[in-house]
Amino acid sequence: MPDAVGLELIAGELRAEFGDDAVVGTSYHREQACVQVDPSKVIRVLGHLRARAEHPYPFLASLHGCDYLPEAPRLGIHYELLNMRTVDRLRVKVRLDVDYPQIESCVELFPSAEFQEREVFDMFGVVFTGHPDLRRILMPEDYEGYPQRRDFPLGGELVIFTHNEPASPGWYR
C-alpha cells in the first residue's frame, strides 16, 4: 500500500495531469489508500495509473459496486488496482448518481473487467458505455430491477409448511 504521503503524491500527480477537478478526494483508512476521482475522467485516470513510468498499477484485482443509500451520489464503483512487484494496492473510487448511472467501460484497459462490469450492471444498473456485451450475467435475462440496490427489497417469502397448508389453499400455484 502506498502510505498516506504517497497517496497525496499520487493525487497531486493526477491533479497536475487531468486538472484540479479530476480528484474529488482521498482517504487513508486502515492502511488502505483510496482516491476518489471524477466519473468523467476515471478511464483516463486508470489508463494513467496503469501505464505510469516508475510505479504502475497494471493489474485490476477487482471491480465492484456499492450503494451508499443515505448519501447524495448514491452508487459507488471501486477499482482495486495492484502492483504485483511491490505488492501495492490502490483503490480508485467513483461516485455516481442513481438516476442516470452511466460510466465509461474500462474493458479495453483491463479485459478482466468484462464479467465484473456486467455484474455491476446486473446488480446496480450502472450502464458501462463501450462495454462489448453488456447483458445481465447472474439474474435471468428478463429480470426487472437491480437487486443489490439498498432500496430493493430483500425478497424471500414465508415458508409454508404442511401443517398450515389448509389455511392457505392453492399456495403452490
Binding site: H29, Q32, C34, A61, C66, H78, E80
Partner: peptide, 17 residues
C-alpha cells in the same frame, strides 16, 4: 469504513470487500 482484504484461496486471490 471500507476494507478490501485479499487472501490466497485454492483458486487464486480471494478478496473480501
Amino acid at each position: 469504513g471500507e476494507v478490501y482484504l485479499p487472501i490466497e484461496s485454492p483458486r487464486g486471490e480471494l478478496g473480501c470487500f
